[in-house]
Amino acid sequence: MTQTLQHVIDAVSLGSLYALIALGVALIFGIMNLLNFAYGELIMIGGYALYFLRDLPFAFQALGAIAVVVLASVLIERIAFRPVRGANAAVLLVTSFAVSFALQSLAIVVFGARAKGVSLPSWLDDSLAIGSLRVSSLSLITVGVAVVVLVTFAIFLKRSPMGIQMRAAAESFGTARLMGVKANSVIVAAFVLSALLAGIVAILVVAQGGTVSPTMGSSLVLVAFVATIIGGMGSLSGAALGGFLLGALTVALQVLLPESLRPYRDAFLYGAVIVILVVRPGGLVAVRSALERV
């Protein structure tokens, strides 16, 4: 029983992390139709910001890292993506690849290819005893942060004028503009929100691994894309749900697979993803189109 509870907590924790990453990718995709491969590099930038701000108190280190990621995201939008805005999906995809490789290469040139250790407060490594259960602080913090962030996002998107404009733009950017929604404002807001998530993810990932490297975001962004696709392209709630499901599946397979098959965990994981897409090609939360009843 204790063991099962432990696995559930691990699954929810990993699912929470994936949900945050997937939401960041889905925000940009929904509005710009852009699969932003450079999102992983935003997480990497956050990691290096934590490394350079390591002498500051943790609160300033964390806030500073998030601020650096937001600034980088806004600059990337202005310099790389705005000039190709409105181009077809292939052009946007290649542009995001180019930005991703450029930032990774720059990090290798400036910081070197080897991972660097980042020291964060020791309380992040503590574990709490709940009866016979031992839960790491970081797992609880990850779940707590994800819940707070997702609820805050939901309220923002539902209640604020910018949130409503972003949801409208995610459903149909062209029609939203016909209603006076300013393209630049909505896109910049999406990049800022997406960067806030990337900054938070960077802190959680660095806290878990203790290191930063130029390629630390690459595998995470792939996870985010898969989560976004199984959740339903263009659906923000679907992306978060897809992230949770992917995290839970990862942990479940790790636990349930026989030891001899565990090295192939990802093959089983993505096999399950294919099954989900065969059953629900539009993803778990298909974006609802207008019902055409006369």
Binding site: I164, V287, R288, L291
Partner: peptide
Amino acid sequence: FATLTVEENLRLPTFA
């Protein structure tokens, strides 16, 4: 906007 409520659809243009 099918996923927005009718009120949100109506409110959207007033933001501008």
